[in-house]
Amino acid sequence: MIDIHNLSYQIAGQPVLRDVSLQLAKGGVVAMIGPNGAGKSTLLSLIARLLPLQSGSIVVDDLQIGEATDIELARTLAILRQDLTVASRLTVRDLVGFGRYPYHRGRPGAEDRELIEAALKLFDLADLGDRQLDTLSGGQRQRAFVAMAYAQDTDYLLLDEPLNNLDIAASRALMEVLRDLTRQRGRTVVIVLHDINYAAAYADRIIALKAGEVVADGAPSTIVSDSLLQDVFQTRAKVKTVDGRPIVLV
């Protein structure tokens, strides 16, 4: 469980998160939505220790962020962000191989190699293993990064707007892979999304943030509504229910 307790964060005196307390249970896809500047990415970065904590606490399982060692955290929690730029000459297999680094610290064993090949196969990358990253399409590259995070074998995977720049096929494929990870392997995926329809379709739980505070929290069917869009995004969009699942008419 990720236990966030009284978390506040300021940038240059401006509050970005105000006293956020949340508990994210193990398993399932948790989507964070909200307008630009609501604090979603900051919250994710704080959990992933990319930003130093200012006040409040975050505990992942029994590891306290800020006190647990980097390697322990690397075996528990992985993060992927959209703005990843990686040395272009890295091959897909090399990249996925880095996922095992927290375990072998630079000296991969036979078991690590097996896991890397398994990850390549699982994410449909076996044929692309020796291709360099900059020769891949956006969707393939994104898949390679997720395969790396998979090889890292962490219970928690945090993703910050992974669907940016992906077309509908790549977006759906990625979301399906993430959902399968939670269903079949008991992983927990926390994901920042802009498109509420993707959140409603694939998430088990949606957390809406606005101005640094949690304003709605629950299953997609219970919280995605006209009034949520009005409150959180200040836009008048209709929400219809199709096949038992809320859809925002844009």
Partner: peptide, 16 residues
């Protein structure tokens, strides 16, 4: 090697 992946990934891999 890990550091050359950039700050986000290297932190994620336990090598801030």
């Amino acid at each position: 090697d890990v550091t050359s992946l950039g700050p986000v990934l290297s932190t994620s891999l336990g090598e801030p």
